[in-house]
Structure formats: structure tokens, C-alpha cells
Simulated assay, not measured.
Amino acid sequence: MLVMEFKAVTNKAQKLAIDEAIRTSRFVRNKVLRYWMDNKGVGKKELYRYNTDLRAEFKFVEDLNSHACQASVENVERAIHSFYDNCKKKIPGNKGYPRFKKSSRSVEYKTSGWKLCPDKKSVNFTDKKGIGKLKLKGTWDLWRFDVKLIKRVRIVSRADGYYVQFCVKVDNSETVETTGKIIGLDVGLKDFYTDSNGYREPSPRFYRKGEKRLKFYQRRVSRKKKGSANRKKAINRLGRTHLKVSRQRQEHAKRLARCVIRSNDLVAYEDLRIKNLIKNHCLAKSINDAGWYQFREWLEYFGQKFGRITVAVNPAYTSQNCSNCGEVVKKSLSTRTHSCKCGCQLDRDHNAAKNILTKALSTVGHTGTILNAWGEDTSTLLGSGLEEQVTSLNQESPDF
């Protein structure tokens, strides 16, 4: 599934109509969820039947396209299934019991309720909410795809305006040449990651750099009178600043992940539980600012797109074990250098990256994946091709 996003050009009346459609979608979701809570054991058919009753009872719900209401029911259904799956798997901690939404930012249409204009630079929403024709700004080319391949259309509200997303059912995979190179990555706070070749990618720390500006706009919000127009403007300005930081972090993770995947046939990384890590309140802000999970998601996405192997390994003892002899060398978090009796002396993160790669290779071997050659290690530096970053391994291919 390919998601293509465009900025929507809207007037004041259209903004009000979109906000009303989003509120209606949230209303349907919360009502259906309440119906499920009050009637234990109801199934999928009963939820959709109750949605039909809501459309008959409330005029503003009937004005929203029926497929958009069904999409809200599907959101409740996914939340219920996720909760039951977590219970069956006996996941420790919170099982994710479905909750009511106090606020939402999107409304989703399926195959009806919208019509793409012939120029494919605008979309017309045909339900009774009054959204009408929205002009689209963006560089994506919708001409490449048949309209029948567009399965979902979302309108998303953000601090800097409204966006229209088209979910297109196409095969997005690409064929790239094999490089014969493998790599292990150890993420950290001092450096964004350190690879098994010793290269360190510096951490951008977007939130830390923008924190002063964020605090300034937060103070402006707190000084405004609640419910006033000036307070709404201040909240929107604060939201746009947060959105800029979020986009910077997302783009950074995407750019690095694409470079790493294209440069290597196998990429190994840690299977970290970010939810557990941020329980340490001394490091929570820095961990969230790093965006490790976003980086992992993009690694897996580009790995699937380009046909590369991505392996998440258990991070246990990757920092303590020696990458040369396997001996356990205990060290605290403040100890940044790994020194072993065998003579191996490396940076702590470099040693961990080597251990991550070793674990991944043993895992890949057990799953039956065959690597033809280890070849040469390559730098993950952006725009790599720098020959001084490439080092030869001179090691025979392992037999798996």
C-alpha cells in the first residue's frame, strides 16, 4: 500500500465542514465503542447494525458518507481485536483496552464519498457535509495509477493546515543490485548510531535544539485567557513548532534508513522496548528525542521495499560481551570503552554493534537464509562511496 499525501487549499467554509466531518467520525467511533462496552459479546455484525441505527437517529451522522462511518466502526473493531490478542498472548502490563477519543484529527473515506477531478490536481467530496472541491498541492503524480486502485482517502488536520492522503494498492518494491555487505547498528544517545565498522552517526537532537523556542511559545499560551481567540492562535503557533521538530526527526530517520538499507544486504539492529526504556525519567526526554523506533520502522520498510534482510536481535549483553573472545566484561553505563583481557579495546558502542551483527548472523543461519559472501564492510555515511570508509574483512563465507 502506497500513501500519497497532498496539502489541501481550503477556504473558511471548507475548514468548518472538514472539522464537522472529523467530529462526526469521532462521535460514531465513541458511540459504537460504548455500545460494545455495554453489550458484552456483541460481534462485527451487531456493531455495523448499530452504526446503521445511528445514521437513522442523527441527521448529522447521516450527512457523513456511509463508508466514512464504516471506517470509524473498523477502527473500533481493530482496537477490540488488538486488545483480545494482547490478552491471549499474555503481554505484561497494559493490554490496550479500547478507550474513547477526546479529540481526533482525521476522517477516512473508502471507495465512495469522493471523486477525483479529471486534472487529478483536485478532489471533490460529494457527501452532505459540504466540503466540496479541494485543490491539491504536492509533487506526487496521481496519473500513474488507476482510480480503482485508490482504496482509501483521508483528510488529516494538522497545525499548519489540512492534508489529503490517498492510499493506493500497488506493489511499491524496487529491485536493487546486491552489495555483498552486512552491518550491525547500535543506537545510542551520544551518537545516533554506531555501526560494526566503527562509523558514528552524530545525533541531531532536534527537540533539544528547539526546546528554547518551544518554551517561549508555551509561556505565551499560558498567559492568554482561556477560550479567547488569542489563546487559540498561540496554541496553533506552538503546535506548528512541535510539528516542525517532529518532521525534522521523521525526515532524518527516513534519510538514514534508506541510505543504510541501500548500502547493505543485511542490516542488524537491537529489538529495543522503547516503552520500558522511557520509564527512566532521567533519560526519557533524550530517548524520545532520538527517535529510535521511527528509525527501526523505516529500516524495516525500506528493507521490504528493496528486498534487503533486516534482523532485530535481543540486545541483552551486547554491551557486556567481548566481540573478539565472547568473555563477559561487566561495565556501568558511564564506562564508554570496552577493554578485555584478550587485548580487545574498542568503543563501547562499536563493540555492541559487532555483537549485534554476530547475533543476527546466527539467527539468519537458523532461519535458513543463505548469504553468498560476507564481502566488504561499507560505511553508512550519507553519500557513501568514500573509499576511505571501506575496510576489507578478508573472511570466508560461513556455511549456514
Rank of each mutant, 00 (worst) to 15 (best):
K233F: 09
A234Y: 03
A234N: 06
I235M: 14
I235N: 09
I235W: 01
N236C: 02
N236E: 13
N236S: 09
L238M: 07
G239P: 03
T241C: 04
H242F: 14
H242S: 07
L243N: 02
L243C: 02
K244I: 10
K244E: 11
V245L: 13
V245Y: 04
V245H: 06
V245M: 09
Q248V: 01
R249Q: 00
R249N: 00
Q250N: 11
E251P: 00
H252Y: 15
H252R: 15
A253S: 15
A253E: 01
K254I: 01
K254Q: 00
R255W: 11
L256R: 07
R262K: 13
R262E: 12
S263G: 01
S263Y: 00
S263K: 02
S263H: 03
S263W: 02
N264I: 03
D265V: 06
L266C: 09
L266G: 05
V267E: 13
A268T: 08
Y269R: 10
D271Y: 08
D271K: 09
L272P: 06
I274F: 11
K275P: 01
N276K: 06
L277A: 14
K279N: 12
K279H: 08
N280I: 05
H281P: 00
H281G: 00
L283K: 03
L283G: 01
A284E: 03
A284F: 12
I287H: 06
N288Q: 11
D289N: 05
A290I: 11
G291M: 04
W292I: 13
Q294K: 14
Q294N: 13
E297H: 14
W298S: 14
L299C: 08
L299Q: 00
L299I: 00
E300K: 11
E300S: 12
E300I: 15
E300T: 12
Y301W: 13
F302T: 03
Q304I: 05
K305L: 12
K305S: 01
F306M: 12
G307W: 04
R308G: 03
R308A: 10
T310K: 06
V313T: 11
V313F: 10
N314E: 04
N314D: 15
P315M: 13
Y317E: 07
Y317C: 12
S319G: 05
S319T: 15
N321W: 07
C322E: 02
S323V: 05
S323D: 08
N324T: 07
N324H: 10
E327P: 04
E327Q: 15
E327A: 15
V328S: 09
K331L: 09
K331W: 08
K331N: 10
S332K: 14
L333W: 02
R336A: 02
T337R: 13
T337N: 10
S339H: 04
C340E: 10
C340T: 00
K341P: 10
G343L: 04
G343I: 02
G343N: 02
C344Q: 07
D347V: 00
D349G: 11
H350A: 05
N351L: 15
A352D: 07
A352H: 05
A352T: 05
K354H: 07
N355C: 14
N355V: 11
N355R: 12
L357C: 07
L357Q: 05
T358C: 13
K359T: 14
S362A: 13
T363G: 10
T363S: 08
V364E: 14
V364S: 12
V364W: 00
V364I: 15
G365P: 02
G365Q: 15
H366V: 08
H366G: 03
T367N: 00
T367I: 00
G368M: 05
T369K: 13
I370D: 06
